[in-house]
Computed example of a mutant assay.
Amino acid sequence: MEALLDFVGEIYEAAYKPDHWDHVVERLCCDLLKAKSGALLFEDRQTNTRSMIGAYGLPAAVRASYRFGIAKYDHTFQLQREMPVGEASQITDAEQVRKNHPFYYRMILKPNDIGFISAINIYNDDEWHVGIGLHRSFSAPPFSKQECKTLQLLYPHFSRALRIHREFHRLRTRQQSLHEALSRFMVGLIILGPDGRVTYKNPVAEQLMTQHAGLTLHQDRPKAHYADEDQRLQRLIKKQLHSDPGNVDNRTEALGVHHPDREMNMNIIVTPLAGADRLSEQPGSVGLYLSDPDSALNLPATALQSLYNMTPKEANVAIALSNGLSPSQISEQHGVSIDTVRSQLKSIYSKMGVNKQQDVIRVLLSSAQVQ
């Protein structure tokens, strides 16, 4: 029982450390159930993909081939589909498989010396199928009922840990997608943690600070070029770090910062970010949105096509607007009539959910918080 309790801790550690699943399967095989090899098998029924998220005693080629297609020949995993969730039993005897499924026997069992397989389903629904398979060699004894019962006792812990594992995976995937979207975002974005240090900056922010030295980063903290503007910036950041993001009256404040080499100021909007907001990693985070009216961002039109389902021409018009051009200037620059530009603007407003040109940048700013 002490060994089981210790092992349960390993299961929950793997919930948030995916690389630890290999160690969990190793301990399950070696310390608890005396198996020569084993695997934690995962089938995502929404993407129709299969993988081993944890394995022990299997050649790397087997693990890789499982992910790249051999899984569809896994007779054992197919048998597991028919098993009740949470009930462990021995489901494979190699001698029986050799008669009924010779291909699987020749491809998997015989070359890997797998004579007996004990298994349990952790999940088996429309979302996913997750199961554990443990293997013994041809020369070893079959799995006993008591050994299957031991595996069954661990079921609720595997169930909870794998659900946590799944949610962490989704969060990591969303975070990766968010960073990819923000990398294409046409407004500079800097996120500060509760200590006022930079935790994220997108490429546009880096580009703007390179072009306009009114704002720089010093020891991972934003710093304005002129002392009086920097004092005001630091006061705003400190205020927003301690403000309530849910209070719309305290939602945003703005200032302009200058540099002797640039005629126009850089505009900075300072806003608190809620801890539950996917932009912020923790409560007390602050976002700085940067724009420079004198700098053309020259972002690819494909960014807006992806974010707002615009046509290539509409995306070019939106980018021109963001760079301060008027409809007549856009008409001249693109070689089209003003009526064509106005028609494109109507479509842009509809797709962005706005009614006028001034709202385009506002929506682009706020859209970063709902990606």
Rank of each mutant, 00 (worst) to 15 (best):
P102M: 04
I114M: 12
E95M: 13
H242L: 15
E314A: 10
R251E: 08
A254H: 08
M352I: 13
Y349F: 14
Q369T: 15
K99A: 11
K223I: 07
L288K: 00
S343W: 02
N112P: 03
L134M: 05
R172D: 09
V257G: 01
K99G: 06
R174H: 08
D228G: 04
D228S: 09
E147M: 13
D126W: 09
A276D: 14
F103V: 14
N316T: 13
P59M: 03
A14R: 04
R362L: 15
P84R: 09
F77M: 11
S37Q: 03
G38M: 04
H242V: 06
T49W: 07
L297W: 03
E206R: 11
S139W: 07
Q234D: 01
T76S: 03
Q305R: 04
P102C: 05
N250A: 14
E147Q: 15
P293G: 09
F168E: 07
L279M: 12
D6M: 08
D126A: 15
A296H: 12
F143V: 14
H101L: 03
L153F: 06
G196R: 01
M186F: 06
D93L: 08
K313P: 03
M186A: 06
D6I: 14
A35P: 12
S328H: 06
L40N: 06
F138W: 04
N265Q: 10
Q240V: 09
A296R: 11
E180L: 06
S306E: 15
D22L: 09
D6F: 09
P59Q: 01
M52H: 11
Q357Y: 05
H75E: 07
L182K: 04
G214S: 04
H165D: 15
E2G: 07
H169A: 15
M83E: 00
Q211E: 13
D339G: 08
A60M: 14
E43W: 07
K356M: 11
D31L: 14
A3Y: 10
L171R: 14
H75M: 05
E314Y: 01
S118M: 15
T302A: 13
L273Y: 02
R221W: 00
H135R: 07
R67W: 05
G275L: 02
I330H: 01
A64T: 10
N124V: 00
K72Y: 14
Y104E: 08
S326E: 08
R342I: 03
S306R: 13
S285K: 00
Q305G: 02
N100P: 01
Q176W: 05
P142T: 02
S337R: 02
I53N: 13
Y289E: 12
